[in-house]
Amino acid sequence: MSEKIEKVSIIISRGSLDGIYPGLIMANGARMEGIEATLFFTFFGLHGIINKKMDKIKIATVGNPAMCVPSAMGPGLPTWMGAIPGMSWFATSMMKKEMEKLDIPPVREFIEMISDAGCEIYACKATVDMFHLTKDDFCPQVNGIISVGEFYEKSAGAQIIFT
């Protein structure tokens, strides 16, 4: 049998609902299996840990050719319709309902759960500087703002996963 994975470092780089959740699910799943995990948020992925943004994460209905209505196996949503006001809100609320059924928590609760599970959470310094953010803009579970060099140091011995 191959060697067991002992540690993962997961990077979340996108700020849409489908950009943020996969990384959160993987980090939480790692901790559930007894695997050490670190989460690193960069670029728009930072929205998942910014206090004022994290409760308003949405699905992109524009530029998303896989967007189907009324469910995943329905016909594709014509691109121009995705731009109708309220479409993103609607698609997001539909998906959140489905997620709740599967017991997938909202972003804020998920971050708390992952942090309590012993996963460390970091924000990318380059993006924080670029967006003119400070530590106070983030939810309390964020362990720090670190450079890419520090990220690699913390990831020693880990599998790095970019999402």
Binding site: R31, M32, G34
Partner: peptide, 12 residues
């Protein structure tokens, strides 16, 4: 709670 659960059953 989550913290206690991980403390009670460490590593998974």
């Amino acid at each position: 709670d989550t913290k206690e659960l991980y403390a009670l059953f460490p590593k998974g």
